[in-house]
Design a protein around this nucleic acid. Structure first.
Length: 591
RNA sequence: GGUCCCGUAGCUUAGCUGGAUAGAGCAUCUCACUUCUAAUGAGACGGUCGCGCGUUCGAAUCGCGCCGGGAUCACCA
């Protein structure tokens, strides 16, 4: 039970006795400038009390003193009743926190249906970039948070492995590759394939220019460019199952997957199941036919199939082309249904950029109209784009921030900062490399996850991400310092009991911050927002640093106090580690 | 044009199920390391919460209308 829960019910009882109030009672944290642990706003009760705000506050305060041992003091400031909790309450809270199995997180019920989270979902024609990084970090963190809220989670990605884009890379590789492979080039496969995608684009633009010089207009030139025709021919061959094309396709895609997996590994994420569009693009047609029979969709004279969503404030939307082939929507309908058949899940979250808000609104509506009960449990975690100071990232202009490069730069920054500060003495080369990775990635991940997912964010590659202040490394540092103290304390007997120690103000604030952890996790899960956990982790680190500055640990006045503070330190360290873990950030033992 | 999202100190942002004097970090300026890691702590400076009207005892928070930024409205994916 949260500290406030017992108090809330006591307040509720008092209000009912005094004024016959039976509505909800909400307490808030007392502002720092006033004495107290919890505050009741009495304005809502004035009509019933028929007294001034201050008098009402005092009346409720007196009644609470008499009614419950939880409250030892109160003060009334205008309409605000500030309540001071008994020290037994604080002690009881810390007892609950330190004895908890994994404070803050709920245990997963393995029998209950899981929550599925789809994220990353790349195309196989180029390497991952900064936009994917935000997506991946959000998806992974939300998955961890859902788990911590007591849900089993299935993480999936859908890989767009077929279509013109990959044929472009394939064609360029055939033309200009000279049989090169990731091994022979010494290059990650996704980057190598991406190079050929760029190569194609160069070729294409050259051909278009040439044709236009010969007098064709732009549209005609684009359609007639030989390389584009070749690619379209290749796509047809792919669809017809041409052995050679399929073989090349499989080979180049496997290069890309090796590259992606390397990046995923560095980021510390994984997927329980991959869906491939080459397999899922046929899904959905059957469901459309069924819906057509039940009148959810309608067929136009030309044979195309539509849904009318004008009553819902949207438009009419095509779900099957005139020639009976699928559109994106068709496939998404089929894939969603497939997933609920593949797994025991009762909800599905899509981590996809806000440019697809409309698409998902329509998709969810259609599934609802098709009568799936789980349609209400579909959620589009819509996040804002990552832009550069100059605007959008554009691959043509070479302004795309590559994920691998970015990770490498973060590690390099961590290295130079650590060396500058002289923090790496006594570490082996492997340990150092590991530490720079942990810190650099921690800085990047926190930088991205601390902001509300919905907000678009600007990333300036010229300015390195901070390691001081409201950052990942700040939290990691707080953890490392605690671990350092705990190492020094090893073997020291430090038994203590509440009879021997009293809780000072900083310790109390630290305990109260720790106490918020479970609620922070639940709120983050409810709102699909890692930013809530990020903010909590920061608050906790801050509360600890304040406490630490004011209180000697190993040199405390009494051995009992040493024991108490050590336990408070250890409890804080593990909470910090858990919170960082929910963000996909590692907590170093030293730094 | 219709629809959706965003707008809080110079910059990055928290607060958004309505509550006290709107919290942080960066930057700038003080102070604190012979003492458990100064990637830290304590403090100063900095705000018409885009603008207006409304609801309310009370609005950054809710409603309406503007302004600014972004996205989207393809038989593209």
């Amino acid at each position: 039970m949260h500290m406030a829960d017992a108090l809330e019910s006591a307040v509720s009882t008092v209000l009912n006795t005094l004024y016959g109030w039976d509505g909800p009672v909400e307490l808030q944290e007392t502002r720092k400038d006033f004495e107290g642990d919890a505050t009741l706003v009495v304005f809502p009760f004035l009509k019933l009390s028929r007294k001034s705000p201050a008098d009402t506050a005092r009346e409720v305060g007196e009644a609470l003193l008499a009614a419950t041992p939880l409250v030892v003091r109160y003060n009334a400031v205008q309409g605000f009743l500030n309540l001071v909790l008994s020290s037994e309450q604080i002690q009881a809270r810390f007892d609950a926190i330190r004895t908890a199995e994994a404070w803050g997180t709920a245990s997963v019920d393995p029998a209950a249906p899981a929550a599925m989270v789809e994220f990353s979902s790349p195309n196989t024609n180029k390497p991952l970039h900064l936009g994917h990084v935000r997506n991946i970090l959000l998806g992974h963190s939300v998955s961890r948070i859902l788990e911590a809220s007591g849900r089993k989670v299935v993480q999936v990605q859908i890989i767009n492995d077929r279509g013109v884009h990959i044929c472009k890379s394939m064609w360029a590789w055939q033309q200009f590759g000279g049989g090169i492979t990731p091994e022979s080039a010494g290059k990650k496969g996704d980057h190598l394939v991406g190079d050929f995608y760029v190569r194609f684009d160069q070729e294409y633009r050259g051909q278009v220019r040439e044709l236009m010089a010969q007098g064709l207009d732009e549209e005609a030139a684009k359609a007639q460019a030989p390389c584009m025709r070749a690619v379209q021919e290749m796509l047809r061959a792919w669809e017809a199952g041409d052995t050679e094309v399929r073989h090349l396709w499989a080979t180049m895609n496997s290069w890309v997957y090796d590259g992606f997996n390397e990046t995923y590994r560095r980021l510390g994420v994984h997927f329980d199941r991959n869906y491939y569009e080459s397999e899922t693009y046929v899904l959905g047609k059957h469901d459309i036919e069924e819906g057509l029979a039940r009148g959810v969709f309608y067929r136009r004279d030309d044979g195309s199939v539509w849904i009318d969503l004008r009553e819902e404030g949207l438009d009419e939307k095509l779900v099957l082309r005139r020639d009976g082939t699928s559109v994106y929507m068709t496939q998404d309908i089929g894939t969603a249904i497939q997933r609920f058949a593949d797994f025991s899940i009762d909800r599905l979250t899509y981590v996809v950029g806000n440019e697809q808000d409309y698409h998902f609104k329509v998709l969810f509506l259609i599934l609802k109209k098709l009568g799936y009960a789980w349609a209400d449990q579909l959620y589009h975690l819509s996040y804002g784009m990552v832009d550069l100071p100059s605007g959008k990232m554009k691959s043509r202009e070479g302004t795309v921030v590559d994920a691998d490069d970015l990770l490498h730069e973060m590690e390099a920054t961590a290295r130079s900062l650590s060396e500058e500060l002289g923090k790496t003495e006594g570490l082996g080369e492997a340990e150092k490399a590991k530490l720079y990775q942990v810190l650099g990635h921690g800085a990047l991940k926190y930088f991205i996850l601390k902001v509300d997912p919905r907000k678009r964010m600007v990333f300036n590659p010229e300015e390195s991400i901070d390691f001081n202040g409201h950052t990942g490394p700040f939290i990691q540092y707080s953890h490392a310092r605690i671990k350092s103290i705990l190492r020094k304390a090893e073997g020291r007997p430090a038994a203590w009991s509440w009879a021997e120690v009293s809780v000072d103000e900083r310790s109390k604030e630290l305990i109260q911050t720790l106490d918020r952890f479970p609620e922070a996790v639940q709120q983050a899960a409810r709102t699909y927002s890692p930013a809530v956990v990020a903010q909590f982790a920061y608050d906790l680190a801050k509360a600890f640093n304040s406490f630490y500055q004011a209180n000697p640990i190993l040199n405390a006045e009494t051995e009992a106090l040493v024991g108490f503070r050590l336990e408070l330190c250890a409890t804080t360290a593990s909470a910090l580690r858990s919170a960082l873990d929910l963000l996909g950030i590692e907590a170093p033992e030293r730094m």
